[in-house]
């Protein structure tokens, strides 16, 4: 009720993306010659392929949108404050990984958008040269060029770059994501369960079934340490507090989470039946896509990039992520967590 179920919705979309992605991998060929045609095959030859690709693409969009909503919810309900600072940091890292997955996935079909997105991405990676050029040290210390070589595996955009994006999208980033997601969910438990205010009134709980199990399952003040506690201060899941109006995970929370999961999956399926995922013409290195439009979640950065590749592509995103990470440590204001401002 106080979390709006956005976390479980995200987990649901991630599961859908993982499953549909694994199936798409059967048909996708990560080569310059094969990529575009294999996507065409998935769209028109593979039974159910078009639908599967739609699910994967709209799922990706939905995941990015839900991450933003989830962060906004946590922010506006003060839930990033102690003891949840660390979990907020993990969340910010998950945001970065989500965007990285979205970008690498967007580049795989090797259509015009993909090719020019990789081209622009690699030039952003090389853009620290704007600084090293100004300092006159690019010959000795070309960090930008090194980053571009890491990204492309070559001096120009081609097969090695596509393979690296594929490898990142299907292996490295999902593994990192899964590890961080496990930590993220584990920390919810360690930090005292789902975020909620400490003064929930009976009115607010109207309609919520009373959970008799919770009355007996928890001690008012647990006095023992649970496992995996070594890095967490104090003894109880909710430090110094008893389980006021606690709802037990099984079956109460679990049923609700399953309901949200079903809702997310059904809306994603409907979306994929009605709308087709976009695909441009085959990549043409001689003719830039015009207008080369980034997906909606990068539009703001694209606008800044049009003035300076370094400012919009590296400086601004790095500073934003640092700022997000530091929010709980900079904010010294005491506040009730679990409620949004003013209500």
């Amino acid at each position: 009720m106080f979390t709006m179920g956005l976390g479980i919705a995200l987990l649901s979309v991630f599961v859908v993306l993982a499953v549909s992605g694994v199936v798409l991998m059967i048909y996708f060929q990560p080569s310059v010659e094969g990529a575009y045609n294999s996507i065409k095959d998935i769209q028109s030859v593979v039974p159910g392929g078009r639908y599967l690709r739609n699910v994967h693409r709209w799922g990706a969009y939905m995941m990015v949108a839900l991450v933003f909503f989830h962060m906004a919810r946590v922010f506006f309900t003060n839930s990033y404050k102690g003891p949840r600072q660390f979990n907020w940091v993990v969340g910010v890292l998950l945001l970065v990984l989500t965007l990285a997955l979205a970008f690498t996935g967007y580049c795989l079909p090797w259509d015009q958008l993909a090719y020019w997105a990789i081209t622009i991405g690699s030039n952003i990676a090389a853009s620290p040269a704007e600084i090293t050029d100004a300092l006159g040290i690019t010959d000795k210390f070309d960090i930008g060029g090194l980053q571009r070589d890491f990204m492309l595996g070559s001096k120009s955009v081609g097969g090695p770059a596509l393979l690296r994006f594929y490898w990142g999208h299907c292996i490295v980033l999902p593994i990192m994501m899964m590890i961080l997601m496990v930590v993220h969910v584990w920390r919810i438990r360690k930090d005292g369960g789902l975020s909620r205010p400490s003064d929930i009134t009976d009115d607010e709980l109207e309609g919520t079934p009373r959970d008799e199990l919770a009355e007996t399952a928890f001690q008012q003040k647990p006095d023992k340490t649970y496992g995996l506690m070594c890095v967490v201060p104090d003894k109880t899941p909710a430090v110094d507090r008893g389980p006021e109006q606690t709802v037990s995970t099984w079956p109460s929370v679990f049923y609700r989470e399953m309901a949200i999961m079903s809702l997310v999956i059904v809306s994603l399926m409907l979306l994929s039946v009605v709308f087709n995922a976009p695909l441009k013409e085959m990549a043409n290195p001689a003719v830039p896509e015009n207008p080369a439009k980034a997906p909606w979640y990068f539009l703001a950065l694209q606008e800044v990039i049009s003035y300076s590749a370094f400012a919009g592509g590296i400086m601004l995103p790095t500073l934003s992520v640092l700022f997000l990470i530091l929010i709980p440590y900079l904010d010294r204001e005491e506040g009730q967590s679990g409620r949004s401002y003013g209500c």
Binding site: L146, D149, F150, G153, S154, K155, S156, G158, G159, P160
Partner: peptide, 12 residues
């Protein structure tokens, strides 16, 4: 392992 990401001969 990062060294391996930068090939000594570029395939261009």
């Amino acid at each position: 392992s990062l060294v391996g990401l930068s090939p000594s001969v570029m395939p261009d």
